[in-house]
Amino acid sequence: MLRQKISIRAIVPVAATLTGFVVVCCLLLYTVIKGDLNRYTIRHSTDLTATVVKATHYAMLKDDRDSLMNTINSIGEQQEVEHVRIFNKQGLIMFSGTASEVGTLVDKVDAGCIGCHAGSQPATRLGPMDQARQYANSAGDEIMAITAPIYNEAACSNSCHAHDASQKILGTLDVGLSMAPLQATLGLLRNRMMIFCLLILFLSVGATVGLLHRNVLLPICQLSAYSDDVVNGNNKPPVFEATEEVQQIARNFCHLADQRDRMRRELDILQPVVGKLPDAETDHS
């Protein structure tokens, strides 16, 4: 039967396990790389946001609203920037890359805001990784938004548009970046890993099957055919190529068959002689 064949019993489990293990390792590797890329993107975006805050710092200090608006508009025109806005502590949008947003209130229960505003007191200090949040916008696009609080500094509270020194946060810069480039990179990585995985699979399964076939299965099939020949009385010496052990088994078969034939020949010779001998019982009597 099929399941009893040595080729099936040897190859199926090995091929299946090789495939499974390579797939598991590739999936875990992809997840790890995805996590690393995600962290790198968040860190990069956080640095970018910090750069924007520093670049606009002087304009804010001098209360140069035109210059600030111009900078925000220029950033908002970038293709990968979904939104860029600065809102004050009350959530009123003061500057935005989208002109219609200016003067409106941000929704604190919005997917991008609820992270910090879930509790009774909003979080005021966030680590670099906590400043990032991922959500899908109304168009269904994946967005990574970074918030950078604009902290009250001594220079701010001492300048002409002085803020109260006790006020910790003056406002928040919120930049939303499209995750499409990251998704595209991950898609490319996924496809390449799949190709790599398939190549590894073909190579490892092919090599295992080939080696098993060449060194184990084929010699055993030849040995089986040779033993059939020997059983049928064809005692030619083994001529097939195989490993030393299989060849030794074949030579032993051949040796046993030769011994069997020699005994048969001797029996053929002895039988007439034994037949001519006087009966032992007669002799005794």
Partner: peptide, 9 residues
């Protein structure tokens, strides 16, 4: 995938 491989085997 791990479960499928191990339990399949």
């Amino acid at each position: 995938a791990s479960g499928l491989t191990i339990l399949g085997l």
